[in-house]
Nucleic acid binder design. Structure first.
Lengths: 101, 101
DNA sequence: CGTGTAAGGAATTCTGACACG
DNA sequence: CGTGTAAGGAATTCTGACACG
């Protein structure tokens, strides 16, 4: 359920190299609620590979001129869809096991 | 072929938290040739999740009193074995495709 | 709105060395 | 051999703000 992909261990400097985005931009997108890094004890932001992927998506949309609030809506929608998908999957699994019972 | 697990993106402070090992130990095990972090442009060491796993293995062995050179030999052996395994697998795949041809 | 930058402080990382054993 | 520590410097990260637009 929890893989390396979601483990928050990458500091902002590395994320900046990985994405080509300035630290300013990365912090700003967080401020806008587009991603949620964790913090180390001392307050340094740490990101996951998933966060890096999100940032790359944001970078693409920004290049197209899409505003951060629009990007956020899109991401919420994608999340909803995948939530629905997960619910359906769970339903199917339940159905499967009910038949077998 | 190349996954998040092998991507070198974690700085030594985070690795230290993740493994419970002091930075001194982590650098020393590198000096002994047990793992090979990369460096950022500015010279900071960066590690992968694989490196973190290696360090946890080292920590276990060190607790048992095994010396670093012994640990290194073991790791070389394990590597050889998995190399052999990979060769065998490749052989099987080739055989499979030869039959189909 | 989105992003750059200068500012000052606090925490990080690096290397080479001394210490103990 | 394996690890701690103090030392000094260089690079990182953080926040709040001013700037432009």
């Amino acid at each position: 359920m929890f893989s390396y992909k979601d483990k928050k261990v990458i500091t902002i400097g590395i994320v900046s190299e990985l994405t080509g985005l300035s630290e300013r931009k990365i912090r700003y997108y967080e401020e806008r609620g587009l991603l949620f890094p964790e913090r180390t004890k001392r307050g340094t932001r740490v990101y996951s590979f998933s966060d890096v992927e999100i940032l790359l998506t944001i970078a693409d949309k920004r290049e197209e001129g899409v505003q951060t609030c629009e990007i956020k809506k899109d991401m919420m929608n994608d999340k909803k869809k995948s939530d629905v998908r997960n619910q359906m999957l769970r339903g199917q699994i339940n159905a499967h096991f009910n038949i077998r019972k």
